[in-house]
Simulated assay, not measured.
Amino acid sequence: MSRHVFTQLDVFTDTPLRGNPLAVVHAAQGLSDANMQAFARWTNLSETTFLLPPTEAGADYRVRIFTPDRELPFAGHPTLGSCQAWLAAGGQPRSADEVVQQCGVGLVRIRRDGTRLAFAAPPLRRSGPVEPEVFAQIVRSLRIPADAIRASNWVDNGPGWVAVMLGSRDEVLALQPDFAAMRGLELGVVAPWSGGEAQFEVRAFVPSLGVPEDPVTGSLNAGLAQWLIGAGLAPERYVASQGTALGRSGRVFVEKRSDTVWIGGDSVVVVSGQVSL
């Protein structure tokens, strides 16, 4: 058994208990895959991360990301929260303005903008039209008529996201999905929020990861931004709201600069201490 510095943060919020929690284990070298998976299952959060020395040139640190059921190559709120925890623990990046994270999808750039961090959206592994049989499954899963879906697209940057756009925020918040009908889909839903404090409302349904609905989801918002901006369905700079249906008030700050889409958010430390693993 070994002792490790431990941090638990709330991500995509500057107010504790209003965003998406993340557990971070520091200096995790020596822990086995089975140890990491067991601890992630024990925390029962959507993701738990483990910080390690980098093994690729140019990286400042390495992170491994686990859900209660499996390891992910990339996820958004674990990227921002892990970086915040690494910096708070004294991590020194090579660049004053940017941190480089190594994870399953390779190197991810993280921009420092005051106290807020933003990661460069990784390339989509899968994009394009949704197949008719998948579209039909989405309709069944969301329990809505097919014509309620205004647009759909694959937006997979690692977790396997497919996404649909509805007509209004109210429609998104009214959803009561049939999780059994999803049968493995990682499904994102987005709609415009007219006249609100954000421009879009988002929900993320991920029953296959052991979390029926994720409070605030960086990877999904990264994929959505690449799709929506590229298709002319969103401006190059906007704010997305997520977590409303779960009593949270997450805010995701999206900005396209040149050819890069940046996904930003605040993080706040809620718990710090040590864990024995």
Rank of each mutant, 00 (worst) to 15 (best):
H4G: 00
F6E: 00
T7E: 02
L9H: 03
L9R: 15
L17D: 01
G19E: 02
N20T: 09
P21I: 00
A23T: 01
A23E: 04
A23M: 03
A28P: 09
L31W: 07
L31F: 05
N35Q: 14
F39C: 00
A40E: 01
A40L: 02
W42F: 08
S46L: 06
T48D: 01
T49D: 00
L51E: 02
T55L: 13
A57F: 07
A59P: 01
V63W: 00
R64N: 04
R64H: 03
P68N: 00
E71Y: 01
P73E: 05
P78I: 06
T79G: 14
C83V: 15
Q84E: 09
L87C: 07
A88D: 14
A88Q: 12
A89W: 04
Q92E: 11
Q92V: 13
S95R: 15
V99H: 10
V100Y: 07
V105R: 01
G106M: 02
G106D: 02
R111Q: 15
D113R: 14
R116F: 02
F119G: 01
A121L: 10
R126V: 05
S127A: 15
G128E: 11
G128I: 11
P129E: 14
P129Q: 11
V130Q: 12
E133R: 15
E133I: 05
V134T: 15
F135N: 01
A136H: 12
Q137V: 01
R140E: 08
S141Y: 05
L142N: 01
R143V: 11
I149T: 09
R150W: 02
A151K: 09
S152Q: 13
V155F: 05
D156K: 10
D156T: 08
G158S: 13
G158L: 07
W161L: 06
V162Q: 10
M165C: 07
L166I: 09
G167F: 04
S168Q: 13
R169D: 11
R169Q: 14
A174H: 13
L175H: 10
Q176W: 03
F179A: 05
F179V: 03
A181Y: 10
R183H: 05
R183C: 02
L187D: 09
G188T: 06
V190Y: 07
V190H: 07
A191Y: 10
W193F: 08
E197Q: 13
A198D: 11
Q199L: 06
Q199A: 14
E201Q: 14
V202N: 03
R203D: 10
R203K: 12
A204S: 15
F205Y: 15
V211I: 15
V211S: 07
E213V: 08
P215I: 06
V216A: 12
V216S: 06
V216L: 11
G218N: 10
S219G: 14
Q226S: 09
Q226N: 10
W227A: 03
W227E: 05
A231F: 05
A231E: 15
L233I: 08
E236S: 08
Y238K: 03
Q242H: 08
L246S: 09
R248Q: 03
S249L: 12
G250T: 01
E255M: 02
R257P: 01
D259S: 12
D259E: 14
D266P: 05
V268N: 06
V269M: 13
V270E: 02
Q274C: 00
S276V: 02
S276I: 00
L277V: 06
